[in-house]
Simulated scan of single mutants.
Amino acid sequence: MVTVRRFGKARITILTGDHLPPHFHVDTPEGELCVDLTSGEVKGDKTARRSGKVALEWAAENRDSLFTIWQELNP
Rank of each mutant, 00 (worst) to 15 (best):
L66R: 14
R6Y: 05
S39W: 11
V2N: 09
N74H: 05
R50K: 15
R6F: 03
E72Y: 05
E57H: 06
R49P: 11
P22F: 07
T28N: 13
T13Y: 03
K53F: 07
R11S: 12
D27F: 07
H19T: 08
R63Q: 13
Q71S: 11
L56P: 08
L15S: 10
T38Q: 12
N62R: 14
H23S: 02
R49A: 11
F7P: 08
E61N: 12
G44P: 00
A48R: 05
V54H: 06
R5K: 14
E57I: 04
C34I: 11
D18R: 05
D45L: 14
V54D: 15
V54R: 15
T3G: 04
G52Q: 06
P29M: 04
V54L: 13
G17N: 13
E41F: 10
F24P: 10
T68S: 15
P75K: 02
L15E: 13
I14F: 05
F7D: 00
K46R: 12
L20I: 05
M1A: 14
L56Y: 00
T47M: 08
N74G: 03
N74Y: 00
G17S: 05
R11N: 02
N62Q: 13
F67L: 14
R49N: 04
L37M: 07
A10G: 08
L33D: 02
G31W: 04
H19N: 03
H23M: 07
V26N: 00
D64R: 14
E57C: 02
I14G: 05
A48K: 01
E41I: 12
K9W: 07
T13G: 03
I69A: 13
P22M: 10
V4R: 00
M1E: 11
R49F: 11
F24C: 09
K43F: 15
F24N: 06
L73Q: 14
L20T: 11
L37K: 04
C34W: 07
S39Y: 03
E57R: 14
Q71K: 14
H25V: 08
V26W: 01
N74L: 01
E30T: 06
W58E: 08
D27I: 15
L37G: 04
V54C: 05
L33Y: 08
G17V: 03
L56R: 12
I12V: 12
A48C: 08
A60R: 15
R63L: 05
R50S: 14
N74F: 02
E30Y: 07
R5D: 04
E41D: 12
V54F: 10
P22W: 05
W70R: 01
T38V: 14
S51Q: 13
L66S: 08
Q71G: 08
A60Q: 13
H23Q: 01
V2P: 03
R50W: 10
T47G: 05
H19A: 01
G8E: 11
S65M: 06
D18S: 07
T16Y: 05
D36Y: 03
H25P: 10
D27P: 00
F67E: 12
V4E: 12
A59L: 06
R49H: 07
L56W: 02
F67M: 08
V54M: 10
P21M: 06
I12R: 00
E57V: 03
L37P: 01
K9E: 12
L73D: 02
Q71A: 04
A55H: 10
